[in-house]
Design a protein around this nucleic acid. Sequence first.
DNA 1: GCTCCCGCTTAACCTAGGTTATTCCTTTGA
DNA 2: TCAAAGGAATAACCTAGGTTAAGCGGGAGC
Lengths: 191, 191
Amino acid sequence: MDATLLLKHIARHITLSPEEQAHFTSLLKHRAVKKKQFLAREGDVSRGPTFVTAGLLRSYSIDNDGYEHVIQFAPPGWWVGDIGSMIHQRPSILNVDALEDSEVLFLSEGDVDDLYERIPSFERFFRILTQNALAAHQARLVSILSLPAKQRYAEFCRLYPSLIDCLPQKQVASYIGVTPEFLSKMLKSRA
Amino acid sequence: MDATLLLKHIARHITLSPEEQAHFTSLLKHRAVKKKQFLAREGDVSRGPTFVTAGLLRSYSIDNDGYEHVIQFAPPGWWVGDIGSMIHQRPSILNVDALEDSEVLFLSEGDVDDLYERIPSFERFFRILTQNALAAHQARLVSILSLPAKQRYAEFCRLYPSLIDCLPQKQVASYIGVTPEFLSKMLKSRA
DNA sequence: GCTCCCGCTTAACCTAGGTTATTCCTTTGA
DNA sequence: TCAAAGGAATAACCTAGGTTAAGCGGGAGC
């Protein structure tokens, strides 16, 4: 279990003593998720915060007609999950599965509370993390409400240049909120 | 300047000593915003966190064709603003104005940093606050991507029963992502 | 009591994007 | 090595929701 990437990520915002780092690392759990396997299913109550160390995952909802809607892609260095489910301990409305063989590190919900008690600077770390995520979600809301599909696609390319060419087109379509057929048509028509 | 509502709000998550409470209160700034006046404009860099104590505000974006898209309504007890602008100190993509004569309390960005230093439990408070906001934003994303207009309207009514009958219909239409004309048609057609 | 503005409705028409279905590839895997 | 599955493209047709424009009614200012 390699926590290097996660520790580096944390060190960008807070400083931990060697003992704190050791304590934190001791709480981490590891899980490998093969391509197409689920990390979490709609209806489950989410575990604690989950950090991707390898591979590529996505979270998505399923509508009444059975269509999938990608909420988030999670390459290494990102966190995934249903935040509502995590913080309120209620059934998740999202599925999380792996688009590639992946590995994640996570904390159990109880261990997170313990962590906040013993190392209060994690309050700060998760505050900053959540604020960044909130800013991103707000920007995405603005984009979905205010921009036509073509510009949402352009924005996706601008924000996630490294994802655009390792993702199947239909996943990108789902993320920007159109059908794969329409995205195909759209890309073709663009002179 | 009455900080009672805000202090009550804070007390739900963290406990402050009388001195801490006094220090916090001393940092607060007050502002009255008359109906139709702006609290913040697209392009401004946002001040710190802003708490509504009276009235009703909204934040919204304006698209390329000049149409407004409501991102959030903010009755008393809620926070408003462009989080991206606030945390990265970059120009806001949102406008905030008052739908009714309103009053807000806010912190300057520098004072927030000072607050985190002197009263670390505010890290916890804003962490929880932001997590709740993030969960709400995530749920709204799911709803916009997965549900047709009729169900988004129903969900709005379920989540904000107290807002539904003090808001002009066109504001609700904007929030759920349809035109006022279409919402009118939709409500009429519903047997 | 009269404006004038604003929000709501209606209705005719329009279009971005969805649906269904078929074909063609590429990948995977027994 | 062949079959099966899944991604992509294309095309004909469809619909949720948008656009434009006109009329109506109520409330805030005078």
